[in-house]
């Protein structure tokens, strides 16, 4: 069972993930995503009538951390994997000032 995901849908998902895809990639990912979805679709064959939705596979709840500070990284450690930094901040390409996604 394989379904092709429409190119427009792939494009939409790519934009949400901030990915610029070529025309060939759109087609390829459309196919691959279709396979993934079809695989997951198999779950729909199970009858879940009257079964509570599962929030977590483990039967545990209420595991806490007490509100006590632990040491943080220093800035140098925090920034060491960053492709660009000025020693204090992570640097990223300029983003729109008034944009707020939340």
């Amino acid at each position: 069972m394989s379904e092709q995901i429409a190119a427009t849908q792939v494009e939409h998902i790519a934009r949400l993930a901030r990915l610029a895809l070529t025309h060939e990639e759109l087609t390829r990912y459309g196919e691959e995503l279709g396979h993934i979805l079809a695989y997951i679709e198999q779950l729909n064959e199970v009858n879940t009538e009257g079964v509570e939705p599962l929030a977590h596979p483990l039967a545990v709840h209420n595991v806490w951390r007490v509100d006590e500070p632990q040491p943080s990284l220093d800035a140098q450690q925090a920034l060491q994997n960053s492709p660009a930094t000025d020693g204090r901040y992570f640097l990223v390409p300029k983003v729109l000032e008034h944009y707020d996604a939340s």
């Binding site: 951390r65 509100d67 006590e68 500070p69 632990q70 040491p71 943080s72 990284l73 220093d74 800035a75 925090a78 920034l79 204090r88 901040y89 992570f90």
Partner: peptide
Amino acid sequence: RTKLFCGCEVQFGTEPNTRV
């Protein structure tokens, strides 16, 4: 005193990227 999911201190106005 600390963040929601880790033990870093919640502190306003500290040097950037030192409470991470």
